[in-house]
Design a protein around this nucleic acid. Structure first.
Lengths: 189, 189
DNA sequence: CGACAAACGGAGTGATCAGTCCGTATAGTC
DNA sequence: GACTATACGGACTGATCACTCCGTTTGTCG
């Protein structure tokens, strides 16, 4: 389905630069930031941005997928951790923490994969699967209420990210908020 | 500081219409919706929209304040409820539920009042105060962990709204997610 | 009812921005 | 080092949108 011709060295470099710049600019100025702004931040011309990402939406999607891939990789690594409940909690905290700085994680999650429609395809599915393993193991371990689904978990991740977004300046508050959610995850009394 | 001249009857009517339409359109199409679209929805000319709200931002702010006022009123009513913990939980559920339909509550909250800077002024302060009462009573009642602040609570409200945003189609899932957060609110085991 | 101020509708305007195009430059190859 | 395909920069374009302006309408008050 994919027939990736090898990109020229400069092309590959510029693509990465644009992606990084877009990630940063979107995070700081919101997704309404202009393409030209991103081009400037990346040190390339506007044309180059559009060559690699024909549409602004393509660029946004690429940024999101990048984030999701990181998350999926992290989740994957924890799939065989000795303490499933601690693993899930750690992952959750880490994901929220990480997204506090570059706050678009929530949008990334929300944009790519919650709705059943696209949940079946691509990276979204990978993340979903990896989270599913973490969740199920933690549930078997008795550390997470059994009725929760992967979608529930993803929703809570989104919620936690969004909730802590304005709290960037107050790590203690952020910690309290995440703790509330994590404690809520565990089996009810 | 305010010198409200009495508006003409039609002006007052149109202002309300525009506000309602804006609320609906923003909720459905996001805040990027054009002013003309709102004018059409309200059944007025674009000029009228701008006469009442000189800037698009003014319009957005007005919509937000409207929402916050409703919330503050609801919270105020519960200030003397016989069962403080149940009152807080009920308020929380209601707020999230309500925002599921017109999903901009989260932005409303986020936009107007989390940061200490503007927390001191206007409606944001009213809501904050009303929530403070609810929270403190529930904490005294032993139903909510004592270390949480009003800001924490507001953050969690935002988080819950955002988290359940994509779950509009699945009330059961929404319920599970909110329950997780509410149970997390209660004093830890 | 008549007169005046207040408000209305909607055509018009300038700015912004996503996306295109092409002459120039550079990486890869022999 | 020369040749070619690939990629680059940035001027350009068309569309969209926030906001303005003014001739017309409508509420209000004596």
């Amino acid at each position: 389905m994919v027939d990736e011709k090898p990109l020229r060295a400069d092309a590959r470099r510029n693509r990465a630069r644009v992606l990084d710049a877009a990630s940063a600019v979107f995070a700081e100025h919101g997704t309404a930031a202009s393409t030209e702004q991103i081009a400037r931040a990346a040190g390339v011309g506007p044309g180059t941005v559009f060559r690699h990402f024909p549409t602004k939406e393509d660029l946004l999607t690429a940024v999101y997928l990048d984030r999701l891939e990181h998350l999926a990789a992290q989740a994957g690594e924890l799939a065989t951790a000795p303490e499933p409940t601690a693993a899930l909690r750690g992952f959750f905290r880490g994901a929220v923490e990480g997204s506090a700085a570059k706050n678009a994680l929530a949008q990334a999650l929300a944009g790519a994969g919650i709705s059943p429609a696209d949940a079946a395809s691509g990276i979204g599915a990978r993340l979903r699967a990896a989270l599913g393993v973490l969740l199920e193991r933690a549930q078997r371990d008795g550390g997470v209420r059994p009725e929760l689904t992967v979608t529930d978990l993803m929703s809570l991740l989104i919620g936690a990210s969004r909730a802590t977004e304005p709290l960037a300046a107050d790590p203690a508050a952020r910690d309290r908020v995440v703790t509330v959610i994590l404690d809520g995850l565990s089996a009810s009394r």
